[in-house]
Amino acid sequence: MKLTLQIKLLPIEEQALSLLNTIRTCNIVCNRISDIAWEKKEFNQYRLHHLVYHQTRDSSNLSAQIVVRCISKVINAYKAGKKKKRVFKPLGAITYDSRVLSYKGNTASVWSIDGRLRIGFVCHNPRYLPHVKGEADLVYRKGKFFLFQTVEIPEENIKDVEEFIGVDFGVNNIATPSDGIQYNSKQLDKVRNRYSRTRQSLQSKGTPGGRKCLKRLKGREARFATVTNHAIAKQVVEKAKSLNMGIALEDLTGIRERTKVRKVQRRKHHSWAFAQLRFFPPI
């Protein structure tokens, strides 16, 4: 099972400055590569690599592997569409792999334009670190640095079961297992309504302070909904394990296209994260 482990880096001031400069440099290089890819209409990674690799190495202070990762970032961006030239933000996320990033204890060895940086970190599930496999995204968000690292957890042995717990999904009741327990959305709706009112108030003012506050609040509602879904998923799975039963989930594919809602119901309907709950790993 592949998961994404969120790791918060704890750099000192000099290391933070070096990471920022590294991110900016990589995105400048990505924009140069994107210019060439767009001009030549070349969106194949192998051929683009031969077009830009050597000149990029000669004109920048990036290592060979980081240049390869920059080329991959550009190619991945054009996979979403080739009708528009891709432009990368100065502080957009950059990708690392095992050649330029490693972990030892509570320290991460991260490549930067100033050399390797050994930075302390914290993460919510350190027991997953031995299962690190694949790439990691270095993200700068609200003055903090995060690594979103791919890990591959060994699958548990699948047991044959004869009985299942059925789970229905809904807007008012997030999940309703067949054992009769209901996980309602009262608290989630309360939080969403509060953030919605706050956003409307700040947006109507249009002041610099209001925009700064909006930026600070960004993502809080989504994170609360994610934690709620994760907690529900864990409880349902633990119940199924204790009873030695399987889980049968309601399939709501295309439900938003099949149903019509009133205007006042649109926000609640479209913020319904049933797909996230359906695929949440229960660990």
Score class of each variant (00 low, 15 high):
35 D>W: 03
40 K>N: 05
45 Q>E: 08
43 F>R: 11
28 I>E: 06
30 C>H: 02
49 H>R: 14
29 V>L: 09
32 R>K: 09
26 C>G: 01
24 R>N: 07
48 L>Y: 09
47 R>L: 11
27 N>Y: 00
26 C>V: 04
20 L>T: 05
19 L>T: 03
44 N>F: 08
31 N>G: 09
19 L>Q: 03
43 F>L: 12
40 K>V: 05
24 R>H: 07
45 Q>S: 09
38 W>N: 12
44 N>T: 13
52 V>S: 12
42 E>F: 07
53 Y>P: 15
28 I>K: 06
51 L>W: 13
53 Y>H: 15
54 H>D: 15
44 N>Y: 10
24 R>K: 11
42 E>L: 11
34 S>I: 02
54 H>F: 12
36 I>D: 08
37 A>Q: 07
35 D>N: 08
27 N>R: 01
52 V>T: 14
49 H>S: 14
19 L>Y: 02
28 I>M: 07
40 K>G: 00
19 L>R: 01
44 N>I: 11
28 I>C: 06
38 W>L: 08
31 N>S: 08
25 T>D: 04
22 T>K: 00
29 V>F: 00
44 N>D: 15
38 W>F: 14
45 Q>H: 03
29 V>D: 09
22 T>N: 00
42 E>R: 11
33 I>Y: 04
52 V>R: 12
31 N>I: 03
26 C>M: 03
22 T>H: 00
21 N>W: 03
21 N>E: 04
46 Y>F: 15
19 L>D: 06
34 S>Q: 04
43 F>T: 14
39 E>H: 07
50 H>A: 10
52 V>H: 13
46 Y>N: 15
43 F>Y: 15
21 N>G: 08
45 Q>K: 07
24 R>L: 07
45 Q>L: 04
40 K>E: 10
45 Q>D: 05
42 E>Q: 13
53 Y>L: 14
38 W>H: 12
30 C>S: 13
38 W>V: 11
38 W>K: 08
35 D>K: 05
44 N>G: 14
32 R>T: 05
44 N>A: 13
39 E>Y: 07
20 L>D: 01
23 I>V: 07
47 R>E: 11
44 N>C: 11
52 V>P: 10
42 E>N: 13
36 I>P: 00
